[in-house]
Amino acid sequence: MRDERDHPRNPGLSVPEAPEAVRRYRKPPPLHGRESHIRIFDPENEARQVYGETQRSRDGSLPHEEHGPSAVLKALDPFWTRGIIPEDEANHADAGETQA
């Protein structure tokens, strides 16, 4: 998380008003009251299910493939099929949330 006081233009602008300028953004409650699917990842207490330590990148770079593996290899590799919601589940999972 960056500190806004480090911004090249901020010294002199924000420092005198530090309490207000650096106040944390207060996250509003979700719109329409539906469940949120976004949260901060807790590496201490959660298994890293998606990308392993070898793919983890703190400098912003991500694994890059020019052309991607073949479709068959993808299908056989759980990395490519993880997280896909099956057709029948997708059709029913959120039916109750539709607003007329």
Binding site: M1, R2, H37, I38, R39, I40, F41, P43, E46, R48, Q49, V50, Y51, R56, S57, R58, D59, G60, L62, G83
Partner: peptide, 16 residues
């Protein structure tokens, strides 16, 4: 992203 974020079970790295 400014830190690691989890969305729908997938973890997105920082600065992605």
């Amino acid at each position: 992203t400014t830190r690691e974020i989890k969305i729908h079970g997938e973890v997105i790295p920082e600065r992605a």
